[in-house]
Design a binder for these strands. Structure first.
Lengths: 217, 217, 217, 217
DNA sequence: TATGAATGAGGATTCATTCAT
DNA sequence: CATGAATGAATCCTCATTCAT
C-alpha cells in the first residue's frame, strides 16, 4: 500500500459517499438524520403538525438543508416510507429464507411483521396512523412500496400451494388481502390501544387463525 | 282544517325538527342535506379539498348554517360516519336475523358489507380512502362508531362457537380483527382499482377463506 | 312612496352594491380602501417590502379580506394601476375636450400629466419607480392600460395633422414614443430628485420643445 | 510616442486591469466571464430568475468565487451596467468626434445608440427590461453611470447652441431628458415587440423629429 | 333560523451569502 | 485563489369559524 493506493481508495470512498441512490437522490449522513428526525417528529406531533422546521431542528440541520436532500416535504415522507418499509420487507425476506416449510415461512412473516413494529413504536405510529392522512398521491407511492411485500407473500403462498400445505384453489389476491388486511388491522388496533399489550405474542394465534380459519375441524 | 290547525301543525313539525337526536344534535331536513352534500363533495374533491363552503353550497345553505347543525367540520364527518355506518350495520343486522346458522350469518355479513359499499361508490370512496386522511382524533371517534359493527360480529362469533361451528378456543378479538381487517382491505383495494371488478361476487370465496383458512384440509 | 317603492329601491341599492365591476371583480368601500392603502404602503416601503399584511393593516382590514376583493397580490397592483391610470387618462381626456386647437390639446395633455402626478406624489413614486420592478406579466398588463393613453395621443396628433399644425409626414408611432418617453423621463427624474422642484411649470417649456424641436428656426 | 511607449502603456493598462480597476475592484479573466454570464442568464431567464448560482454555472466558476470578484449580487449588476454602458458611451463618443457639425453629432449619437443595442439583443433586453425590475437603490447607481452619457449629450448640445444650430434658449436638462427619454422609449418598444423591425433605420426620422419637433414649419 | 362578509392564524420553500477546506 | 455544502430569514394565501344583521 502506497500513496497511490491511498489516493485511489480515497477516490473510491469519495465516489461512494457522493453516489446518489437508486432514486438519483443525494445521500450522506444528513439524509439519514433527516429521515430519523421525521419519524420522531411525526410520531410525536402527528402528521399535520410535523413542520419542516421542526424536523430540521430535530435533525440538527438548517431548514434549507432539508431541500438539499429532498425535493419537498412530501418527498421526505415517501423516502421515509421507502427506506423503512424497504428494510422492513428485506428483514422479513432474510428470515423467511432460513425457514424450510411454507407454514414456518408464514409464521416468520407474521412474527417479523409484529416484531419490527413492536420494536420501533414511533415507526409503528407513523406507518399505521400518521402516514394514512397523507394525500392520495403519496398514498399511491406508498402502495408501490407495498408491492414488494405483497410479492413476498405471493412467494410464500406459491410455495405453500406447491407443497400441498395451502389449498390448491387458493385465490392469491384474496389470500394476500386477508393476510395483509388482518396484520395491518391487528397492528393498528395495538397502536391505538397505546401499545399496552404484547404484540409479538399474538403471532402464534394469528398464524393459526389465518391458516386454519374460523371454523373448527 | 283552518288557520289554527295550520299553526298548531307548524308548531308540531317545528318542535319535532327542533328536537335533538340521541347525540343531543339538532335535526331537520337541512341536517340530512348537509350530510349528503358532504359525502358528495368529499367523494368528488377528496378530503383535503372538501371545504365547508363547498359543502354548504352543495347543500344549498349558507356557510354559517352548517354551524347551527354541527359543532365544527369534524363533527360533520363524525356525524356522516355515524349516520351512514349506523344504517350500514343496521341493514346487516336485519339480514342476519333472517338466517339460521352462524355460517350463513357470517356469509350474509360479508355479502352485505360488500353489497352496500358496491351500491354506493361515493360512500365507499369516502369511508375507505378519504376519511382515513383525517386526524387520529377523528379516527378514534370513527372507531367508536365501529363498535356496533364489532359487537354484531361478536354475536355471530358467539353463536357459531356455541353451535360448534367455530373453534372452541377462538380468540374473539383476533377473529374480529381478521374479519374486519380482511373485508376492509378487500374493499379498499376494490376502490383503489376504480371499482372495476365485481365486489359482491367475492363474498363467497372470501367467506370460504375466512372460515376455512389458507390451509388445505 | 309606499312599501313597494321601498322594496324596489332596496333591491336597486342592493343590486348596485352587489354589482361587480367590468373585470367581474367584487367592489365596495373596502376595495377602494385597499387600493389606497397599497399606494401608500408601496410608496413608503418600496414594491418588494410591501407585504400583503402591511397593506391590510393600512387599509384597516384583515389579511384574508384582501383576497375577497383581489385574486392575489399581483391583482392588487394591476387593479391599482387600472384604477389610477384609468382616472389619469380620463381626466386628461376631459380637459382636452375643452380645448380648441391641437396645440392647446397637447399642452393640456402635458400639463395634466405633470399636474396629476405632482398632486399625488405617492402615486408618482409607485408608477414611476416601484411598479416597474414588477414581473414581466404585470408589465404587459400595464402596457394594456397605457394603450388608452397612447390612443388619446393619437387623437391629438391626428387632429393636429389635419389642421396643418403638425407635420404632414409625422410618424405617429415615433411621435407617441417621443411624447410619452419624454414626459415619463421628466417625471421619473423629478421623482428621483425627491420632487424638490416644481414639475408643473415645466409643462410650458416642455411643450415648446416637443413642438418646436431642438433646432432654432 | 513610439513602439516602446505603446508596450509600456499596454503593460500599465494590463497590470491595472489585473489588479483593481478604477472602482477598486479585483479584475481578471473570471471577472469578465461572470459579467458575460450575467448578461446571458438575465436575458434568458429574466431578472428575478437570474440566481447567483445560475450565473456562476454559466460562468464556469463556483458560487463562492463570485464573491471574490463582486461584493454581492447587486454589485454584479452595477458592474455589468458600468462595463457595458461605459463601452456604449465610449463608442458613441469616438464616432461623434469624427463628425463636424452638431447636427451630425446628434444624428451619430442616435444612430449609434440604436445600432449598439440592435447588435446586442441580450444586452438590450437586460438594459431596457430586466434591469429596471431592480430596486430603486440599484437604479440610482445606474443613473450615476448614465451621467457620462448625459454629459456627452451636453457637449453636443453646447456645441450646437454655440454654432447657432440649436435654440439659444434651449433648456439643457429638458433637452437631455427629451433625447434620452425618447431614445429609451423607442428601444424599449422595439424590445417589447420582440425586435421584429429594424431599429437602426429609425435613426433618421427620429433625428428629424427631435431636431424639428412635431410642428410643421 | 339563516345569512355570508369578515376574520387571522399558520407553514413550506427559495436563494443570496458564508466559511471550512 | 477556489470551492460548494450549509445556512436561515422572510412571506403569500387558505379556509374553518364567527357574528351582526
Amino acid at each position: 500500500m502506497n500513496e497511490w493506493s491511498f489516493i485511489l481508495m480515497s477516490n473510491l470512498i469519495k465516489s461512494c459517499s457522493e453516489r446518489k441512490n437508486a432514486m438519483g437522490k443525494k445521500r450522506g449522513p444528513k439524509y439519514d438524520q433527516i429521515i430519523e428526525a421525521a419519524v420522531k417528529v411525526i410520531a410525536e406531533n402527528g402528521y399535520h403538525h410535523a413542520q419542516v422546521s421542526k424536523i430540521a431542528k430535530e435533525a440538527g440541520v438548517a431548514d434549507g438543508t432539508i431541500y438539499l436532500y429532498f425535493k419537498n416535504k412530501e418527498d421526505i415522507l415517501i423516502s421515509l416510507f421507502e427506506e423503512k418499509m424497504g428494510r422492513f420487507v428485506d428483514k422479513i425476506q432474510e428470515q423467511i429464507e432460513g425457514s424450510l416449510t411454507a407454514k414456518d415461512k408464514l409464521f416468520i412473516l407474521i412474527e417479523m411483521h409484529f416484531k419490527q413494529l413492536a420494536e420501533n413504536r414511533p415507526l409503528a405510529i407513523v406507518t399505521q396512523l400518521e402516514l394514512r392522512q397523507s394525500n392520495p398521491e403519496l398514498r399511491w407511492k406508498i402502495n408501490e412500496v407495498l408491492k414488494k411485500y405483497l410479492d413476498l407473500m405471493d412467494t410464500v403462498l406459491t410455495e405453500g400451494k406447491e407443497s400441498g400445505y395451502f389449498s390448491e384453489d387458493l385465490d392469491f389476491r384474496l389470500a394476500r388481502q386477508m393476510i395483509f388486511g388482518t396484520l395491518d388491522e391487528v397492528v393498528t388496533n395495538w397502536v391505538m390501544k397505546d401499545c399496552k399489550y404484547d404484540l409479538v405474542s399474538l403471532a402464534k394465534p394469528m398464524h393459526q387463525l389465518l391458516v386454519g380459519g374460523l371454523c373448527s375441524r
